Amino acid sequence: MSPSAPFLNASEAASQLGVSIKALRLYEQQGLVTPGRTAAGYRVYGPKQMDRAGEIVALRALGLSLAQVARVLDGDSRSLATALATHESALNEELQDLVQKLDRIRCVRADLARGQMPVDGELTRLVDRARMSVEFALPWPWGGERFELRDIRPLNYIIGSLGSGKTRLALRLAETLPGAVFLGLDRRRNNGVAALDLLNGDASLKSRVDQAMDWLIDEGATESRALTTLLAELEADGPAALVVDMIEQDLDAATQEALITFLRLRASAGMRPLFLMTRSSAILDLAAVGPDDAIILCPANHSAPVRVAPYPGAPGYEAVATCLATPEVRARIARRPEATAGEATICKPQARALRDP
């Protein structure tokens, strides 16, 4: 950056770096970057701070935890070498995919030269963005309306008030999406297999879970059986998509925040789609929703579920915001996930506070 570059306020700096203001504050809290201050006490970012913050953003994009970022910035090369090796592997996979698509294009062009038109679906596969779509008739409590979800994102949040039908929507998604698995509140797959059973006899999976756990602990998470269970599913091979019932269950607030950071980093690397039922504002931070995220709202009046844009004033935004729990309520949910009389206060009062069917 030029020495004559202007000093930026927090909003301008975050926009230029492509991160949220909350992320900049987190970097500051961790001692990774120290902004300047105006005479009035406002944070400002000059050339040196922006260069430093840019390095942090790049290291985070490589999948490093905040603790690993700090070590790399202090000169430790081991964490960086591991992250670069992982990134190289992902790029190689992308390259192989592009080579295969290029081969298909050449085959189609050769067929055209011989007067043969592409077979049904061939052109679609050539320009496929590799994102799923799904369509089905909505179950009860809806009236069988057609529901269509196109351009499925890596992270999909399912939210709604009590009794809105979000659990039934999640189950139908898991039934309809090819190769999808539903993970219920007891953390068993829809075929009855317990998530922790996946670790038995699978040294490779255990190693991946241990690495993920170490990363999350670096981010401030608390190790627990609930977190290990989730990681076993997230790291397991096989499912083409994973649908998780109330992902925040039995996780404290700091662990929820670390987990969603972990998942967002994975999403940017092209992971399989996740559908996360949630009422937690740590899991669904509306200010942090990006291009890899989608919000699916099940309205309280049982009209068809809709995708909601993450900005104030968008249709459905206020309904989503009112269904997200405060940190205090999140802590209570983590201690006792089952429905209680007080749980109805998480969303605006309903005429009937029914538990999701």
Rank of each mutant, 00 (worst) to 15 (best):
P312E: 10
A353I: 03
A321N: 12
A341T: 09
R71S: 11
F147V: 00
T82N: 04
I217R: 15
A40V: 02
N301G: 15
A240Y: 00
T255A: 12
D292T: 14
R129N: 14
L185G: 14
D97W: 05
A39S: 07
L169Q: 09
R335Y: 12
S4K: 04
V44Q: 15
E55P: 00
Y42K: 06
G46N: 01
L198C: 07
A351D: 14
L32D: 01
T34M: 06
Q350V: 01
L183S: 13
L126N: 02
L73S: 04
M1A: 08
L8F: 12
P310T: 00
S281V: 03
R71Q: 12
T167Y: 10
P349R: 04
V69T: 08
C107L: 13
M132S: 08
S280C: 10
V57S: 00
A113K: 01
D151H: 14
A253M: 04
P178M: 05
S303P: 09
E318Q: 11
L231A: 15
R332H: 08
E135N: 09
R43I: 02
A300E: 08
A67W: 06
L173E: 07
R279L: 11
L284W: 15
V329E: 09
I283E: 10
A331N: 10
A23W: 14
F275Q: 13
L177A: 05
V72M: 05
I152D: 02
A23T: 09
G165E: 05
R25S: 05
R125A: 14
S161P: 10
C323A: 08
P3Y: 11
A353Y: 06
D237C: 06
A195L: 15
E175L: 08
R336E: 14
L284F: 13
P305H: 15
N191Y: 05
L95Y: 14
S281I: 00
G63W: 02
